[in-house]
Design a protein around this nucleic acid. Structure first.
Length: 427
RNA sequence: GUGGGCGUAGCUCAGUUGGUUAGAGCGCCGGAUUGUGGCUCCGGAGGCCGGGGGUUCAAAUCCCCUCAUCCACCCCA
C-alpha cells in the first residue's frame, strides 16, 4: 500500500514478535520430538547448484525452482527441498558415520510459484531421515516421529490421519495386470490424482497412458480405492511378488499399531507422492476434515544417495512444512498464549530513584532475571500499566517511604499482594 | 504460466442509484487533580479509498491497464 517499491516480495513473510513466537512454538515442538527419538540436527546451504534438483529429483521440479545465475555465472537455486542436500552431504560423510544415521533439520525452503492458502514461496520444513536401514521398523519409526510432532502440538487422532501406501506394492499389482514398466510413472501419476480427478477421465487415462484394458483399469481403480489389504490378497495373493509386498506393508502397519499409533494411520493406495525418487513405503498426513493440503509427506528413497555419488544406502524420511500446519493449528484453536516472561518491572516515584533502579536492574539481570523499567519519566500509574503490558510477575516500587528505610516494595501482579524487601537483597 | 473473485486507517470492516471537509470497532499515543496495572470514561494521531490512465460538471463508487491478494487449473518439496 505504501511505497510499493519496498513491499515484501510476494509469498514471503515478515515475522513480528507474535508471529515469530508462533513459528518458534512449531519449530520447538519439532526439535523436542526429534531429540526424544535421538535424531541429531544438521543443516546445509540455502543455495545449491541447480543440477542437484533438476537431474536428481525429476524434471518436474524445474518449473517451481527459485533459481538464477550468480555472478560467477553458475546456475544456482534456493533449495526447494532438503533431501537432495542431505543426500549430497551423506555422499561425503556417510562412510564415517555409525549406521543407521538418524538426522533431522528445519531448513527454510523456497519455491517459485503463485501463492495460495498454505503455499507460499518460502516455508520452514521439518525433515527427519533414517539412512542405512532397510527394515520396515525404520519406516515405522519415521512416521511415528511425524505423528508425534503433531501430537506434541496438541493434535489427536480426531484431527489428523496418516495415509499410507507402498510403491513396490503398486508396482507388483500393476505387473500382475500386465502393465509395462515403462508406463509405471504415467500410471503412478494418474493414481496420485484419483481423488481429485473425474473417475471417467482416470479410467480413460489408465487405458491410453497406461496401456490397460478397460476391465483391468476398472479393477485397478477398485483395488486401489480399498481401505484394506485383504481385497488385494484375495485377488492377487497367489502371486509371490504381490504377497511379499502385502506382508511387508502389513508388518509396517503392525509396528505402528504396536506403538499405539493405530488410530492415526490408514491405508490408502492412492497415495503415491510426486517426487521421482521414492521407492517404497510412502505416506502423507492430512487434516481429518480434508480441507487443507497435505501437512506432511515422506517415504522410502533407497536409490537417491547412490544417484548423487554416495554409497548405495537405503533411506527413509519425511518433510513437514510450517505453513499448512500453522493454518490447522489456528483452525483447531491450538495457538498458545504468548506470554512475555518479565520477572520484574521497576517503578520509580521520581527520577531521584532512577540510578538505584538501574543498579538493582543490572544485578538482577546478571543473575539471569528479566527486568524492565520505563525509559522516560512517567507517572506511577503509567509505569504500572506498562508493567501489566509486559507481563511482569512482580513490580519493584522505589519511593521515599521505603527507600529511606533501606527497603523496596514488591507487588505481586497476579495477587496484588505487596511486601517489603531490603534493597540489599535485590542487588 | 492460464482463468475467475477481491483491494477503503496498523487490524476487522461500513460507506445509500457517482454529489459537499471518508466512518465505526479494536489497536496505538495522550489524559482522568502526579505512590499502584488489568475495567471504564474523555481526547488525539493515522487513509491521494492499492497504483496509473479514462468517462463525467462531479469518481472510493463506472471503464481500461497494472500491482497485490484469494480460489481453481498446473504442480506439489
Amino acid at each position: 500500500m505504501t511505497k510499493p517499491i519496498f513491499a515484501r516480495l510476494p509469498g514471503f513473510r515478515d515475522f513480528t514478535p507474535d508471529e515469530f513466537a508462533f513459528r518458534e512454538h512449531i519449530l520447538n515442538a519439532w526439535r523436542r520430538v526429534s531429540t526424544r527419538y535421538g535424531f541429531l540436527e544438521y543443516d546445509g546451504p540455502p543455495l545449491e547448484p541447480v543440477g542437484l534438483y533438476v537431474e536428481k529429483s525429476g524434471e518436474e521440479i524445474l518449473g517451481q525452482l527459485y533459481n538464477f545465475q550468480d555472478k560467477g555465472e553458475r546456475e544456482v537455486s534456493l533449495r526447494p527441498e532438503m533431501t537432495p542436500s542431505l543426500a549430497r552431504i551423506l555422499a561425503d560423510h556417510s562412510r564415517s558415520l555409525a549406521k543407521p544415521i538418524r538426522w533431522f533439520s528445519v531448513p527454510q525452503l523456497f519455491r517459485y510459484e503463485r501463492q495460495q492458502r498454505g503455499r507460499l514461496r518460502e516455508h520452514f520444513q521439518w525433515n527427519v531421515d533414517i539412512v542405512g536401514e532397510e527394515s520396515v521398523v525404520a519406516d515405522a519409526e519415521v512416521l511415528a516421529v511425524g505423528i508425534d510432532g503433531l501430537r506434541e502440538l496438541g493434535f489427536g487422532s480426531n484431527d489428523i490421519v496418516a495415509k499410507i501406501s507402498d510403491r513396490r506394492l503398486l508396482s507388483s499389482v500393476l505387473s500382475a495386470f500386465g502393465v509395462d514398466k515403462k508406463n509405471f510413472a504415467n500410471v503412478f501419476s494418474i493414481i496420485d490424482k484419483l481423488e481429485r480427478s473425474d473417475p471417467k477421465r482416470s479410467l480413460e487415462r489408465l487405458q491410453t497412458e497406461g496401456g490397460m484394458s478397460e476391465s483391468d483399469a476398472h479393477e485397478v481403480l477398485e483395488l486401489f480405492g480399498g481401505k484394506t489389504l485383504e481385497e488385494i490378497a484375495l485377488r492377487l495373493g497367489d502371486r509371490k511378488d504381490v504377497s511379499v509386498e502385502l506382508e511387508r506393508l502389513d508388518s509396517y502397519l503392525g509396528k505402528l499399531e504396536a506403538m499405539g499409533l493405530g488410530p492415526y494411520v490408514e491405508l490408502d493406495l492412492r497415495i503415491v507422492r510426486g517426487l521421482a525418487y521414492y521407492t517404497g513405503i510412502v505416506f502423507e498426513i492430512f487434516d481429518k476434515k480434508g480441507e487443507l493440503r497435505a501437512i506432511c509427506g515422506g517415504g522410502r528413497y533407497d536409490g537417491l544417495l547412490e544417484l548423487v555419488g554416495g554409497d548405495p544406502l537405503p533411506a527413509v524420511g519425511f518433510g513437514m512444512g510450517d505453513v499448512v500446519l500453522g493454518e490447522l493449528i489456528r483452525e483447531k484453536g491450538l495457538v498458545p498464549d504468548i506470554e512475555a516472561n518479565t520477572d520484574y518491572y521497576i517503578v520509580i516515584l521520581t527520577e531521584e530513584y532512577r540510578d538505584l533502579a538501574l543498579s538493582i536492574a543490572h544485578s538482577c539481570r546478571d543473575r539471569g532475571l528479566s527486568v524492565l523499567y520505563g525509559l522516560s519519566e512517567q507517572s506511577v500509574r503509567k509505569q504500572f500499566f506498562a508493567a501489566g503490558k509486559y507481563g511482569a510477575r512482580e513490580v519493584i516500587v522505589l519511593g521515599p517511604d521505603e527507600v529511606s528505610r533501606g527497603f523496596a516494595t514488591i507487588r505481586d501482579m497476579d495477587s496484588g499482594e505487596e511486601r517489603e524487601v531490603p534493597i540489599e537483597e535485590l542487588r
